[in-house]
Design a protein around this nucleic acid. Structure first.
Length: 627
RNA sequence: GGUCCUGUAGAACAGCCUGGAGUGUUCGCCGCCCUGUCAAGGCGGAGGUCGCGAGUUCAAAUCUCGUCAGGACCGCCA
């Protein structure tokens, strides 16, 4: 099977890095080969070679006396030229060719005449003089353009196979493939073992809504699709595989966003006998490899900076700060303990006064500044104070007259305000101050995104709180198997919201790339966590019994991480949505316009699994089909 | 569940605020011409349920209400 062997030798993206290896190895003498070359590889040294190319008619330029067809495949574009005087029958066929017909072209590679070289094309120095031309498949007029012009997203998804031909998705999906490949290599090189886990699992309601799959063999019972391989990877640790990883598909039945789909892909990993530092290193190696193939290796300099969750909230007002968006937030409370300005004095004692400097933001008009105040109120602040640093370093502000010279100077100095800067102050509860200023910080920086064009700001956010307030008391912020910080154990019952956990997030440019934690391997500690969240024994048993059962027979200390592949690829491709990195994504409402999913199933299918639609749903469905 | 934006020819838009005949732009499509283009060029032509449904009005793409779809965000996303 010589052809199979070749495919294994040269399995991937010829255009990016295998062109030279491919050239010369490809057996042009094989009589049954459909093509001798791709549309992206012919060069000057191939002149006079007889070739056969296959591809789509990217553009046809008919000059009457000479005809050009740009033949395109995933590897590139090659110009085919047809001369009516030399090959009248070929020209007759060529004149009928329309955009996106699939063609087979045989001919000889030739230098382009002087002055007609196209430097924008890798193959721009040559052309193929057609001696034979066969349409393999014709095409209707296209419902959407294939250039880079904007197209309605619904239309793109409806005709996704055409959309996929566009340069943007060709590049993005090639990039994604290289990212995944590099991650696999990085994980293998660190002795991680790739192991698959099931996708039909028991529903363990926790966090997001589960997708459920009714069972035919157990009518009335359902599987769930995993929100992550969490429990199984911990079982693998108990099972003695001390370094596991997987490129895992996960499902969460929640509303979609630009960076969230119903189904998504994670690099999932777990390891035994490790601390946080080990996990950081492994993940940094994998993500670093992805940055390398994404052409952003220069922006990835491990070890990545760390910020505790507490500091992230205080300095940036969010647990996923964008370090590119300018200065951190400063606490100004101590300046205003004795101030005459009552709004600040009260906040300084009961809450906080905090400020942020928008570098060069002082050129805003009064109207724009007022809009910022409106926005701050939308975000939950009681108000917003703005100050513009004038050329003489004086502060222009509606409340300047209420503050002393010393207080104004203190604000300017602590925020490092220079002439032309805009200073924003919020007086409120400390958390509100930081959240509002943090949101404004990102929004103000966003329009100037070009200033940070190629910037990539990665960091670890560490020491997340163990619990957050929930409807029924403390709720795990991460999941109930996350280990608490050893210094905070005694607060577990007395002050649960002050307990730090050993959970960590990886953040890049304000996007949460992934999260993980060191897990609990001690049964007593696990019981104390369940007690803290008030989960009764029977519920623990029904939800997590099979994990806890396994934990009775020797559990290695372990921890892990999961990193969103779609988001990682989105950031590296500099795209605004993960839909641009997924071949067949779904809409915001979870529909696939291409296939029509989700769709009703037949009564027979429902009957097989023992389900019956409610009268309301049946009426709705009947109404839909009637209209 | 909520807030906001969008929906006009095959595509992308303008027109809407201030109601007056489906008006316009660019691309594509079809035909003819054209020997070196590469976003080819020139001339001509076809193509419309203004998302859908009500309402107001002598008159609705335009105003009002509802509804559907797509998108951004909030809620949600351990």
């Amino acid at each position: 099977m010589p052809r199979l062997e070749k495919r294994l030798l040269f399995p991937c993206d010829v255009r990016s890095f295998l062109t030279d290896k491919w050239r010369g190895h490809c057996a042009k003498d094989e009589p049954d080969m459909m093509r001798t070359h791709t549309c992206g590889e012919l060069r000057v040294q191939d002149v006079d070679v007889q070739v056969t190319l296959c591809g789509w008619a990217d553009r046809v330029r008919d000059h009457g006396g000479v005809l050009f067809i740009d033949l395109r495949d995933t590897h590139g574009v090659t110009q085919v030229v047809v001369h009516p005087e030399d090959t009248p029958s070929v020209f007759a066929i060529g004149e009928t060719v329309r955009a996106e017909w699939v063609l087979s072209v045989a001919g000889k590679v030739a230098h382009r005449p002087d002055g007609t070289v196209n430097p924008d094309l890798h193959t721009g120095e040559i052309e193929v003089v057609a001696a034979a031309l066969e349409p393999l498949s014709k095409a209707d007029a296209l419902p959407l353009p294939l250039d880079d012009s904007p197209v309605d997203e619904r239309l793109r998804l409806t005709h996704r196979s055409l959309d996929l031909r566009r340069e943007r998705l060709q590049q993005n999906l090639q990039l994604r493939a290289r990212i995944v490949s590099s991650i696999r290599q990085a994980m293998e090189s660190q002795d991680f073992t790739e192991i698959e886990t099931p996708t039909l699992i028991r529903s363990t309601p926790e966090g997001a809504r589960d997708f459920i799959v009714p069972s035919r063999l157990s009518p009335g019972s359902c599987y769930a699709l995993p929100q992550s391989p969490q429990i199984y990877k911990q079982l693998l640790m108990v099972g003695g595989f001390d370094r596991y990883y997987q490129i895992a598909r996960c499902w969460r039945d929640e509303d979609a966003r630009a960076d969230r789909q119903l189904e998504f892909t994670q690099l999932d990993l777990e390891a035994s006998f490790c601390h946080e530092e080990d996990v950081y290193q492994w993940v940094e190696k994998a993500v670093g490899a992805a940055f390398e193939v994404g052409g952003r290796g220069a922006h990835f300099t491990p070890p990545l900076p760390r910020l505790t969750w507490h500091d992230a909230i205080r300095l940036y007002g969010t647990d996923k700060p964008d370090l590119r968006a300018g200065a951190p937030i400063e606490d100004l409370s101590s300046l205003f303990l004795e101030t005459e300005f009552q709004a600040f004095a009260a906040a300084a004692h009961k809450g906080a006064v905090r400020g942020w400097r928008a570098c060069g933001g002082g050129s805003r008009s009064r109207k724009e500044l007022d809009l910022l105040t409106v926005r701050a109120k939308e975000l939950g602040a009681q108000g917003l104070v703005w100050m513009v640093v004038e050329a003489d370093r004086k502060l222009r502000s509606p409340i300047a007259k209420f503050l002393s010279e010393a207080e104004l100077a203190g604000v300017r100095n602590q925020l490092h305000g220079d002439p032309g800067d805009l200073l924003l102050l919020v007086a409120d509860e400390a958390r509100v101050c930081s959240e509002v200023l943090g949101a404004l910080r990102v929004e103000i920086a966003a329009p100037r995104g070009h200033a940070v064009e190629d910037g990539m700001a990665l960091l670890w956010v560490t020491e997340f709180p163990m619990f957050e307030p929930g409807e029924n008391g403390p709720t795990p912020l991460h999941h109930p198997f996350t280990a608490p910080h050893p210094d905070d154990l005694e607060k577990m019952q007395t002050a649960p919201f002050e307990v730090r956990s050993r959970a960590y997030d990886l953040v890049v440019n304000g996007v949460e790339l992934g999260s993980g934690s060191i897990r609990i391997h001690d049964r007593d500690l696990q019981e104390r966590v369940f007690a803290a969240i008030g989960m009764p024994a029977d519920e623990i048993a029904s939800r997590f019994g099979f994990l806890l059962h396994a934990f009775r027979f020797g559990v290695p200390p372990h921890g892990g991480f999961a990193c969103g592949i779609d988001r990682l690829a989105m950031v590296l491709a500099d795209e605004p949505s993960i839909r641009e990195l997924i071949a067949f994504p779904k809409t915001q409402s979870g529909a696939d316009p291409l296939s029509g999913a989700p769709a009703p199933v037949t009564v027979q299918q429902l009957d097989d699994v023992g389900l019956l639609l409610s009268p309301e749903v049946r009426a709705q469905l009947a109404g839909k089909t009637a209209t």
